[in-house]
Amino acid sequence: MKAFLSGIATAVLLTGASATAYAADDGVIRHKLPDSDFPISLAVEVPANRTQVHMSGQVPSVIHADAEANTVAAYGTMEEQATSVLQAIEKNLKSLNLTMADVYRMQVFLVAEDGKVDFSGFMKGYTKFFGTTEQPNLPVRSAVEVAALAVPGWLIEIEVSATRPQ
Results as ranks from 00 to 15, higher is better:
M1C: 04
K2W: 06
A3G: 09
F4L: 12
I8P: 00
I8Y: 07
A9F: 11
A11T: 11
A11Q: 14
V12Y: 05
L13C: 06
G16L: 12
A17D: 08
A19C: 02
A19D: 15
T20E: 10
T20Q: 11
Y22M: 07
Y22F: 10
A24H: 07
A24P: 00
A24G: 15
D26H: 03
G27P: 08
I29C: 07
I29D: 05
R30Y: 09
R30W: 06
K32E: 10
D35N: 15
D35K: 11
D35W: 08
S36I: 04
S36E: 08
S36G: 04
D37T: 13
F38W: 12
P39A: 10
P39G: 09
S41D: 07
L42Q: 14
A43D: 11
V44N: 02
E45M: 15
V46G: 03
V46W: 05
A48M: 10
N49F: 05
N49C: 02
R50Y: 03
Q52S: 12
Q52W: 00
H54P: 00
H54V: 14
S56G: 13
Q58G: 01
Q58N: 06
Q58C: 06
V59W: 07
P60Y: 08
P60Q: 08
S61E: 14
V62G: 03
A67C: 04
A67Y: 05
E68T: 13
A69Y: 06
V72H: 03
A73T: 10
A73S: 11
A74P: 05
T77K: 06
M78T: 12
M78L: 07
M78F: 03
E79K: 11
Q81N: 07
Q81M: 11
T83S: 11
S84H: 09
S84K: 08
V85P: 03
V85G: 04
V85M: 10
V85H: 09
L86D: 06
I89Q: 03
I89K: 05
E90K: 14
K91N: 12
N92M: 02
N97P: 00
T99Y: 04
T99H: 04
M100C: 09
A101E: 10
D102R: 03
V103D: 01
V103Q: 01
V103P: 01
Y104E: 03
Y104A: 01
Y104V: 12
M106W: 01
Q107D: 15
Q107Y: 12
V108E: 06
F109Y: 07
F109R: 12
A112V: 01
E113T: 15
D114E: 14
K116P: 00
V117F: 03
D118H: 03
F119G: 02
S120T: 13
G121F: 05
G121L: 04
F122Q: 02
F122M: 08
M123Q: 09
K124S: 13
G125H: 09
G125C: 07
Y126R: 01
K128S: 13
F129Y: 12
F129S: 03
G131Y: 04
T132C: 06
T132F: 01
E134C: 00
N137Y: 06
S142C: 01
A143T: 08
V144S: 13
V144G: 11
E145Y: 01
A147T: 15
L149E: 06
A150L: 02
A150C: 00
V151T: 14
L155M: 10
L155W: 02
E157F: 01
E157K: 13
I158V: 14
I158T: 07
E159Y: 11
E159S: 14
V160T: 13
S161R: 09
S161D: 12
A162R: 01
P165T: 09
Q166A: 15
